[in-house]
Nucleic acid binder design. Structure first.
Lengths: 224, 224
DNA sequence: CCATTAATCAATCGAACATTTGAATAGCGG
DNA sequence: CCGCTATTCAAATGTTCGATTGATTAATGG
């Protein structure tokens, strides 16, 4: 019966994508690649995996055609095969958030004992940046900033923040963001800034969320 | 370091969804549940799996909160936990179609040697149904028709089609549809109808695709 | 309350997977 | 062309997964 074979063959193909996102290290790698392309070593470092292990996971993602690899000199740079992959990852995350109560519990537990962060409405934000009303601060590593950031944002990676406080105005309000709702970089940044007497809030959205809402994203270095 | 644990814990939760869709039988079950709720036995029959095996796969889907189980008398009826699950499944399928060239190849190979089916534009279809210009024919099992169908569609399951040809007008054009692009019911129906001298075409879209485009879907029995 | 039917559970076995380790490859820079 | 580095490959580990089988539970009807 040819029809049964057709269906089985198609479901098997679909499951290739499923298998690719069935492991937490691979999801973490995908998340990082949604921010910017990276070398194997950089991915391994960020995700806290061994290089060999990272390489193998990346090959699984590559076999499912979710990422592309390109050799650039001595390094192999991996990147999302398509922006659609990021959209798919975000759909998965949204579904998980709404279906798995466990996620909310984890986030709540983590946020316990921390200052609650004011929600920032992104619609008004761009306008306020243009009016020099607020400073939007991108605290991710610089290569992620270069791969895409909120227009007008200033790049100071979290590690360098303490050393570069003089770049920031104490008069203006600071809106810090990082990779997205589950990234802690901006939380840490706000904690530091407040301790130093700045007025700072965290924006939960990262660049992928920003992009998904159809808002503009700038690439490259920002004119200072 | 609490931040690493937070991330690991979240990716682990996300991978629960991934694992749920990492197996072809489970994807087939999800696909069927996108059409209508069903008992374990019915799902096993449609998917060609043993009852015990089906039950276990359904429990995996349930553990990932993608489906709900409700005991109704002697039977357990499984249904999608949320319409969002169907949307996620369709996103996965769309991604697979665009990323995995293998899928296109499988479908092309299957369609080889069959009469090419005219593409039906759904925008105009509802209007033509209202004008009694065409007959829209739903050839899925009746319980799927009852769970949701295209407004104005007539329900004749493929198996009963040959015995009920007298219900259909030879003057009007027939547009047959089934579960979606990878379902062969409508292909078979069109083949039969054409052999019997009817003017019939297949519409690739099924009810989930129809619904996803925001077009109206009717439920229950249709007034004849 | 016993027989029947639907579904699940429990145990099993082989296949597939994740991670680690150490070796191999490929592109540079001297 | 030699040594260095980034990455991949290959083998070996323990673990998890998938399907089958037979037993068990739960609801129903006599």
């Amino acid at each position: 019966m040819a029809e049964a074979n057709l269906k089985k063959a198609i479901y098997k193909q679909l499951s290739r994508i499923g298998k690719a996102v069935a492991s937490s290290p691979r999801l973490e790698l995908l998340d990082l690649l949604c921010q910017s392309p990276r070398t194997v070593e950089a991915l391994a470092r960020e995700a806290g995996l061994s290089v060999a292990n990272t390489s193998q996971h990346l090959q699984v993602l590559h076999a499912a055609r979710l990422v592309d690899a390109r050799k650039e000199g001595l390094f192999v740079t991996y990147r999302l095969a398509d922006q659609q992959v990021c959209e798919f990852y975000r759909t998965l995350r949204t579904l998980a958030e709404s279906r798995l109560a466990e996620i909310e519990a984890i986030v709540r537990q983590f946020n316990q004992g921390r200052e609650s962060m004011e929600a920032v409405e992104k619609q008004a934000l761009l306008e306020r940046v243009r009016r020099a009303d607020v400073i939007v601060l991108d605290v991710r590593p610089t290569e992620e900033y270069r791969a895409g950031h909120i227009p007008g944002a200033v790049s100071i990676p979290l590690r360098e923040l303490e050393a570069h406080l003089s770049k920031l105005s104490r008069r203006r309000k600071i809106v810090a963001y990082c990779r997205g709702p589950y990234c802690v970089l901006a939380v840490e940044a706000v904690k530091l800034l407040r301790a130093k007497g700045f007025r700072a809030v965290r924006m939960e959205q990262g660049v992928p969320e920003w992009r998904a809402e159809g808002l503009p994203v700038a690439v490259g270095e920002e004119a200072k």
